[in-house]
Write a protein that binds this DNA or RNA. Structure first.
Length: 561
RNA sequence: UGGGACGUCGCCAAGCUGGUUAAGGCACGGGGUUUUGAUCCCCGCAUUCGCAGGUUCGAAUCCUGCCGUCCCAGCCA
């Protein structure tokens, strides 16, 4: 997929690749997106996916989807399936689907190579011992007593590890680099560990599994990855990455380049925290529309295009930043503004009776599906004597600059005509239950009198034709910008109690009862909505993906002081 | 107090092989169009680049020192 890069800032990775192509260092670009199948993808991954595919696309290369499945105790097939679905949903087609586990035989041979060259050894100490000898940030580590085993002994031990002779933890294979290195990753890092654990793909074939450091770079090399893009926390691993590539007979020399991961305010983007939200029931699952997971944002109504343009717009740097969630929402609005058909829907209905409108009559208005795009067509919308308008569009004692309905005031019913509020009807409790209004027949859309200007326009739905629906209004998951930023407090303390508001009796324009799950609409003056999978023709369920920009709400707030 | 990295407008972010007035987007403010207070369209918005010195005719770009922030002591990735 090639996308206009009009909102794509220049960035160091693109600059560098371009340079390398021009200088002839590379002839093509091959990237990869390498998730571990131990959890669901979220917005943080989206940045990486978009970057990897964009770099390959822009320079005519290709991108692999590679599952980094080197730790069978945490990985499951269902995550593989979900990840595939998510990447495809975002709009990308990978060149090859790969698994680090496909390379286990090669990796094993590489390990032997290191052993034979005296560059790796079997350490027979337990984890605590190894940790104790690793030293600290300021003190060098101590060599393991097994560090100088002969290649022959190492080979024998390692082959027996592979053969299943030893229990988990009895031995590990370590690179023989430098126990005094200031970079802790170089203090003889673990390359292989014993795990008698069935692997989702290789079954019981192996009982030793390579570590990330040993598997990742070599997998890159095997696939001919030219640029191995990863996040900043792997910067310290690059010397090890390079060391292994240097000392192994790999078929190519990939280059690791690190960039800053995505941070968004008012949410959390870590598998661990998202897992807690699900496990402890703070949300309704991985696909809860408040979750930043692909499953969640998809159900919330975010579009692949909006996610891609967002990821492109934020840029790629090495400086860590926090992007406002609102930036994501704006990209959604920009996308849906172009493509979502408009509809009328009243969330909190207030009945109006048009006293001079004939009873038992229905007038059909032909209404544009998009005010700026005639090619999107029109539809017929019915009006009857009784209708609903938004409760919030009427105020008995409105503040200054309130352009909506008030007693004695006029307002236009969108696409129909101008009405005047003649009488306010209340129940015993003093609550407004109905407005008795009269309409101006001359002001019908299309009539000469439609030129007449009134300050406000309001949306409505015929009472007789209205479709009752459930509407779910979503707001930010957390009530503070950086819920995970306070180390002294548990982030769940900052969950926004009003992140979901369910409206049980919304009234939709007829036709919407047939909205297919996943279909987007703009409810005029209200926001962008998407039909939820919970929808049935009897009971449509619409999720609010994002509100429209609301200048009035801002103004009103200011007026109130 | 070891190592690695980052610090340009409220939020992102170009520029950083030194050369006239520090891109762009968002946000924000002002104005226009509008039967969505939406969209759209104009205009405005850093004498300043974490701080302090230095080199230079000239520095955000080079040097030195300082300050701040992030990452690393899993047989996780």
């Amino acid at each position: 997929m090639t996308e206009a890069s009009d909102n794509s800032p220049a960035h160091f990775i693109r600059n560098r690749i371009r340079q390398e192509l021009e200088s002839g260092k590379h002839e093509r670009v091959v990237t990869r997106f390498p998730p571990e199948p131990n959890g669901y993808l979220h917005l943080g991954h989206a940045k990486s996916i978009v970057l990897n595919f964009a770099m390959a696309d822009e320079f005519g290369g290709e991108t692999n989807l590679r599952f980094d499945d080197t730790n069978p105790i945490r990985e499951e097939q269902r995550y593989v399936d979900a990840i595939r679905e998510d990447v495809a949903w975002l709009g990308y087609a990978w060149a090859h689907e790969c698994f680090a586990s496909d390379y286990f035989p090669t990796l094993y041979a590489y390990a032997l190579h290191l052993i034979d060259h005296g560059l790796a050894y079997v350490d027979s100490q337990d984890g605590d011992m190894i940790r104790a000898q690793r030293g600290t940030l300021t003190e060098p580590g101590q060599p393991s007593p097994f560090r100088d085993r002969s290649p022959a002994e190492n080979r024998d031990l390692f082959e027996r590890m592979r053969g299943g002779e030893f229990a988990d933890g009895a031995h590990v294979l370590r690179a023989r680099i430098d126990m005094a290195a200031p970079n802790i990753n170089l203090r003889d890092p673990v390359l292989y560990r014993i795990r008698h654990q069935k692997h989702p793909r290789t079954g019981d074939e192996w009982c030793i599994y390579p570590s990330y450091d040993f598997a990742h770079g070599q997998s890159d090399a095997i696939e001919g990855i030219t640029h191995s893009l990863c996040t900043l926390e792997f910067e310290d691993h690059r010397p090890l990455y390079d060391w292994l590539i240097e000392h192994l007979p790999v078929p190519s020399k990939p280059q690791q380049i690190e960039f800053a991961r995505l941070n968004l305010d008012f949410t959390v983007l870590s598998k661990r925290r998202l897992m807690r939200l699900v496990d402890e029931g703070y949300v309704d699952g991985w696909d809860d529309p408040r979750m930043p997971t692909f499953a969640g944002i998809r159900r919330r109504g975010f579009t692949p295009r909006s996610i891609r343009s967002f990821c492109t717009e934020i840029g790629v740097t090495k400086s860590e930043s926090i992007i406002p969630f609102g930036a994501l929402e704006r990209n959604l609005r920009d996308d849906l503004n172009e493509r979502a058909p408009r509809r009328l829907a009243v969330l909190e209905p207030l009945k109006i009776v048009l006293t001079n409108f004939p009873e038992d009559e229905t007038e059909w208005f032909e209404v544009a599906n998009h005010p700026q795009k005639p090619e999107m067509g029109t539809r017929k919308v019915p009006m009857t004597r009784e209708a609903f308008i938004e409760r919030g569009d009427f105020m008995e004692e409105p503040p200054k600059k309130f352009f909506r309905l008030k007693p004695g005031g006029e307002v236009r019913l969108r696409n129909a005509f101008i009405i005047r509020c003649d009488e306010v009807v209340r129940n015993g409790a003093g609550e407004v239950t109905e407005l008795r209004c009269s309409f101006d027949p001359e002001s019908r859309s299309g009539q000469p009198g439609s030129e007449r200007k009134v300050k406000g326009t309001v949306h409505w739905v015929s009472a007789e034709h209205a479709v009752a629906a459930e509407v779910r209004l979503y707001d930010r998951l957390f009530s503070i910008p950086h819920p995970a930023g306070d180390k002294a407090r548990d982030f769940v303390e900052f969950l926004n109690p009003e992140s979901l508001k369910v409206i049980g009796n919304a009234r939709l324009e007829p036709g919407l009862e047939n909205a297919e799950p996943g279909e987007h609409y703009q409810f005029e003056r209200t926001g962008y909505f998407v039909a939820d999978p919970d929808s049935t023709p009897d009971r449509p369920v619409l999720n609010r993906a994002v509100t429209l920009r609301d200048t009035w709400a801002k103004l009103e707030k200011q007026l109130r002081g």
